[in-house]
Amino acid sequence: MATAKDASAGSANKPFDIVATYNNLLRSDPDLTMPIAAIEALVLLLTHSPSSTISETLDLLEKSTADLKKAIPNPIGLSAGTDLFQRYLITTLQRPGQLGPAGDFNAIRAHLLSNGRLFIRRAKESRDKIATFGRGFVRDGSTVLTNGGSRVVASLLQHAAGEKGGPSAVRFRVIYVLSSAKGNLENHHAEPEGMETVRALRAAGVPVATIPESAVAYSLGKADVVIVGAEGVVENGGIVSRLGTYQIGLLAKAMGKPFYVVAESHKFVRLYPLGQYDLPIEQHVIDFKTDEDLTDEAHPSDCTDKAVLGEAVDFTPPHLISALITDSGVLTPSAVSEELIKIWF
């Protein structure tokens, strides 16, 4: 106990700032996902901490994770990474063998520290893996509807388009739903997320139509399949994803179109939301105001509200999802809980 106290006190004195590290990592590499950035940040934290006992380290991890989660407005994605890292440490330590309790704790630390880059590379590789799994979902002559700025979806579609001179490029079309939340504002020049993918796909010769969110129901009749990305995949197989995904899911269900989610398995979060308003984050999507409130507040607050809206997420329940395309194969939503149970128990 005493050592644990010392460790937390020690880390408080340290200049190492987990939140800043996390943000830096995310900024420095646009390809990095939140869970991986969180894992990276924790690995770096271990580098900077002198702790040499297990409980000390676990305590430090727990504390920094809590700090990180507090500092980030939407910690769902990153909590997948921190949980995974923590569970990995614990299971490795419990396992017999040299890395276990009998062995040298420094061995596992050394392994983690020396392989930091490897994790990132693997995380990116898993995208390619998903792309190969997911190719079958994009058929010749089909039209895919997608949204958001998911890198996995982008890689899947580009893979299907065969931009790398692949043997059999699929001829398909894409309807890209662009979020209007950002575009409508005064910062009109900031292009909606996903534009990059749109450009890349067009460059690869894939016809892309961009539509606003309001046109989803209208356009869905022309689409054969909906493929979306996810920020986190929750325990019941539902997904937490960019605001607007839920309505696409509902519409796809109503129209009988298959709705596929593409996500790496490190995005699985141990979370069981019961509905939209049960997510452990605070977002001001619905903000009731009267005239009085509006005159009370000057426009600066307006600006921040909109910025939050761009980051907002919603929860798509599992019954709307046809299948999850992950790096461990094509899963039904109910298979997610099993993967999660395997790491936790």
């Binding site: 299971t91 063998g97 983690l112 398995s265 490190h266 790491i343």
Partner: peptide, 12 residues
């Protein structure tokens, strides 16, 4: 290293 769980494949 233990890698029985697919989700750990990232870290193992």
């Amino acid at each position: 290293n233990p890698a029985p769980i697919s989700m750990f494949s990232l870290l193992s």
